[in-house]
Write a protein that binds this DNA or RNA. Structure first.
Lengths: 176, 176
DNA sequence: GCTGAAATGTCAATTAC
DNA sequence: GTAATTGACATTTCAGC
């Protein structure tokens, strides 16, 4: 009759309500896996943590639907596609021109050279990671940005000599 | 005998040699696709750019083998896994202690809170993107780092108020 | 002690590689 | 052609009455 005793779902019930994304240990293990390699088969991951392939698929589907998994993407080597130069641009906005931040948002989003952008506290108002082919391209990028948005008072540049760590991996530990 | 006329590989032959990764328009289109969503089927992408599914799979396999595609990963929402606070830490190393950079490299690589790290020019020697649960955790992170490596003269912190753009997408345009 | 919801595992069928 | 994903169904566990 019974072949395998169904394993007890700890707080899985609460997670399925949809509202509160309470992740259990299975979820955390799966998230750790797919953050490193999302091409692993459900069977492979399930065998590693003690779940069937179907259960793994269901959980990943739920995590995608809940927005915990935002996307599954390929990471390229920038140098191999002709964008080997990375820079960190610190943007300072004049005190009286803070509304320009609203205009900056769509511009940064559409700008292919902009890889990441944060609105921050401190010396700069915005920090932008820019990926270009060479310094001339960066110079042109700065010129175009400052011409389009004169409210930008200053751009402080930090040239990346070497990228020591690159990724969007977020640690998924137990909530203690 | 022959059923389907072998499709003309433009500079694919040169690329397949392994040495020179000359990307053609098909490759660039595929890279643009998979950077946004690597779960798209080969058939879907092939139909969009005029290639068979098999051809798409061959090209993607080659791009992975060449290292153009470094990885395929899931991107998580940091807030949904309890790491909603992002900071940019600027590390300054004392002039006489530059060898500490060698010790920093493995430490940053193993530190789960460190998402990205660049060795840069300018005011700071290193810029580090740190992802933590709250400011207390960041304080502890700084304390641990400075205790482990006293050669770090100063850590300048920029707190991320809002992430305007997040990703590792690299534009893949024609070489021109 | 019984009933209902939720999650798992197994199997078959579809799809993609 | 092979492997993996998807959907359907029976079974088990837990919460509530």
């Amino acid at each position: 009759m019974s072949r395998v005793p169904a394993l007890p779902p700890p707080e899985a019930a609460a997670a399925a309500t949809g509202a509160c994304p309470a992740l259990d240990d299975f979820d955390r293990h799966l998230l750790a896996f797919v953050q490193q390699d999302c091409t692993l088969s459900a069977e492979h991951m399930g065998a590693a943590i003690g779940l069937s392939a179907s259960a793994v698929q269901r959980r990943l589907k739920r995590l995608r639907a809940q927005g915990v998994i935002q996307a599954q993407v390929a990471v390229l080597d920038p140098a191999r596609v002709g964008r080997g130069v990375t820079l960190l641009a610190g943007l300072q906005i004049d005190r009286d021109n803070y509304p320009v931040l609203a205009a900056l948002r769509p511009r940064l989003a559409q700008d292919a050279a902009v890889q990441q952008a944060w609105y921050v506290t401190g010396q700069n108002d915005l920090m932008v990671v820019v990926q270009v082919a060479n310094m001339a391209a960066y110079d042109a990028w700065c010129a175009a940005l400052m011409q389009a948005l004169p409210q930008i008072g200053r751009i402080t540049t930090q040239v990346v000599i070497e990228s020591l760590k690159r990724g969007l991996v977020v640690p998924v530990e137990a909530p203690v």
